[in-house]
Structure formats: structure tokens, C-alpha cells
């Protein structure tokens, strides 16, 4: 109870403070020490999903390590496949008191025409982990290695949404192996997993946390991982790179953004905070060990570059699929 109550009161308080801040700004331009009030963390999805857990864990770890003099107030703003929440953040241009995490929808919803704001409307701060994809096949299918797939005439895979990392990786793998891989869009990760376990699709590209329990149970067999280096959580799974496919390196960066136009000092400030988060034990036990992501800190410049690259990849994929011109 206390958590939701504090959120709503927090919102009221910030609304009030925002009014005061605008008034104060007109009178005295001198900026006090940042941050001077609580920070709104907008989660553009419902509670319980991957993005929600990520955002809340970051807020929790920052609070636990006492890195900020103020509080972070997480608030779910679901709707429009992320468009509602991300628009809420983007329209607070240059306000360093709004923060959000990136997700696949951060890129795909604007590209599919579902959002008035795109990645250009945000200031990247830093990323604190990367989430690779593990290419898997049902154990019953008999594929032991990536090369075994070459024997198949044609394969199918499942994806959530037409434009997704799974669809992107399917395209890349297909080009690399010279085997046709068709991506079938499903309505959720669960449906993809069910189709994979039921043998209705041949291969899948899974998040580490989803793949882990199935691999341990022996129902799915890992073939390759999409990160540049092997993941500590899956030491036995080779990278596509090792297997000689150097064009298949694609991970999801777990990072934070603010509205566009945030001062450079604020970005530097957050780089510092997030570096401490990424290297902390609390982050390792609360997130990395639980979700089996790869620990990694990327600064603002590197993160901005990764965002632009990811967006370009999705755009290329959409052109190849004929969704956009």
C-alpha cells in the first residue's frame, strides 16, 4: 500500500513543485545544486513486465546505495505500446527530473508510426547491462550446433511483433547460414515459447532469463548467443562471432534516457551514478544474477551510438520486410 500511496502523493508534490520551480526560474536564473527535488521515473509499460522490473530494480539499487540526495519515484504509464509513457517524458524537454529506461518498443513503436516521439527526442545517459539473445532449438528437433541448421531446407521462428530483435536476428542468421528462416509474429513471449516447445516453430531467439530455465530442464538446446563475448551465465554457449558469423552481434542495452536538451552536467552526473550502480554488488545480486544479463557499463556517448545503430538496424529490417519505403 505504502508504495502506491507514496507514488501518487509524490506526483502531486512534483506537480506543485513544478509550479514553484517555473516561478522561481523567472526570478532567479541561478541553478542550485542538481538534483534538488525528487525524480520521476516513467515506466511506459504495465507492472510485472521486463521493463517494469528493470526500472524498479534500478531505482531500488540507487536508493539502497544512497547515491542520490533525492528519491526516484517510479510510475507506470502504459498504453500505445510505450508511446504514452515515452511521450510523457519527451514532452518535458530539458527537464532533468524525468527519466525512463529504453526497451524494444522505444525504437519500434515510432518506426511503425505509433508514436509522436522517437529516439531523437531523448538524451541518452548510460547503459548498465546488456541483454543478449540466445538462439535455441527444441531438444526433440535434434539440432546440436548452429551448423546443423544448414541441413534444413527452411526454418521458422517466432517473434513478438513484426519488428523485433528476434525478427532482426532471424534475418541475420538466415543470411549468414544461407537457410531461409521465416519469422512468425505472435502476441507475447509466452506464445512464442509455447510454439517452440510444441514444435510449431523450429528455432527461437530468447531472453536469457526465459532461456535459462528451459535449457536447464533440457527442453531447449542453445545453439549460439548474440553478444560479442560469451555470457558469464551461459559459459558453454558459443557466440555467433566465434562460429564465424561476425555480422551477428546484437544485444539489447539496458539503459536510461532523459528528455532531449538536458544540460551536459546532468548527463555527466548520471554517468557517475550509473557507473556506480553497474559495478555494485546490489545490482549484481538483484538483477544480473536473477535475469542472467551481461554486466556492462557504457557511457553516454557509447550508449547514444548504440541507440542510433539499433534504430538503423530496425529501419533496414523494416525496409527489407516492405513495411516502410
Amino acid at each position: 500500500m505504502t508504495k502506491t500511496a507514496s507514488t501518487s502523493f509524490g506526483r502531486l508534490r512534483t506537480a506543485g513543485v513544478a509550479l514553484f520551480a517555473t516561478a522561481a526560474l523567472a526570478a532567479a536564473p541561478a541553478a542550485a545544486e542538481y538534483p534538488e527535488r525528487d525524480i520521476q521515473m516513467i515506466i511506459p509499460f504495465g507492472a510485472g513486465g521486463g521493463s517494469d522490473t528493470l526500472a524498479r530494480t534500478i531505482a531500488e539499487v540507487i536508493a539502497e546505495l544512497d547515491l542520490l540526495p533525492v528519491n526516484i519515484l517510479p510510475e507506470n504509464r502504459p498504453g500505445g505500446s510505450g508511446a504514452v509513457g515515452y511521450s510523457t517524458v519527451a514532452k518535458e524537454t530539458a527537464d532533468p527530473y524525468f527519466i525512463a529506461t529504453v526497451s524494444v518498443s522505444f525504437f519500434t513503436t515510432p518506426l511503425l508510426g505509433g508514436s509522436p516521439v522517437s529516439y531523437r527526442d531523448f538524451t541518452p545517459l548510460a547503459s548498465i547491462a546488456q541483454s543478449p539473445y540466445i538462439m535455441v532449438a527444441p531438444a526433440a528437433a535434434g539440432y546440436e550446433t548452429l551448423d546443423d541448421l544448414k541441413t534444413a531446407g527452411r526454418l521458422t521462428t517466432g517473434t513478438v511483433g513484426v519488428v523485433s530483435d528476434a525478427a532482426l536476428l532471424a534475418k541475420l542468421t538466415s543470411n549468414a547460414l544461407g537457410v531461409q528462416i521465416d519469422a512468425i509474429p505472435f502476441d507475447g513471449e509466452g506464445e512464442v515459447l509455447a510454439a517452440l516447445l510444441g514444435g510449431h516453430v523450429n528455432v527461437g531467439y530468447m531472453n536469457p532469463s526465459e532461456a535459462m530455465s528451459q535449457i536447464q530442464a533440457g527442453t531447449l538446446r542453445p545453439l549460439a548467443i548474440s553478444s560479442a563475448e560469451r555470457s558469464p551465465a551461459f559459459p558453454d554457449v558459443p557466440t555467433f562471432l566465434e562460429l564465424g558469423h561476425d555480422q551477428i552481434v546484437h544485444t539489447q542495452l539496458r539503459g536510461l534516457v532523459m528528455p532531449a536538451g538536458v544540460p551536459a552536467e546532468v548527463v555527466t552526473y548520471w554517468e557517475g551514478i550509473l557507473q556506480q550502480v553497474a559495478t555494485s554488488d546490489a545490482w549484481k545480486t538483484k538483477y544480473i544474477d536473477r535475469f542472467h544479463d551481461i554486466p556492462d557499463f557504457t557511457d553516454a556517448a557509447g550508449f547514444a551510438e548504440a541507440i542510433a545503430t539499433t534504430n538503423a538496424r530496425y529501419e533496414t529490417l523494416m525496409k527489407e520486410l516492405g513495411i516502410i519505403e
Binding site: 513486465g49 522490473t53 515459447l193 528451459q214 535475469f291
Partner: peptide, 18 residues
């Protein structure tokens, strides 16, 4: 099986992870 077959069970799965 560890498969969230509906939106509600997907949130419950989030609870299990938490």
C-alpha cells in the same frame, strides 16, 4: 512449463521472478 499463456499469468510470472 514456465509459459505465461495470458496477460494475467505473465504478470504472475513477474511475481515469481520477483
Amino acid at each position: 512449463l514456465g509459459i505465461p499463456g495470458s496477460a494475467t499469468t505473465a504478470v504472475m510470472m513477474g511475481g515469481l521472478l520477483m
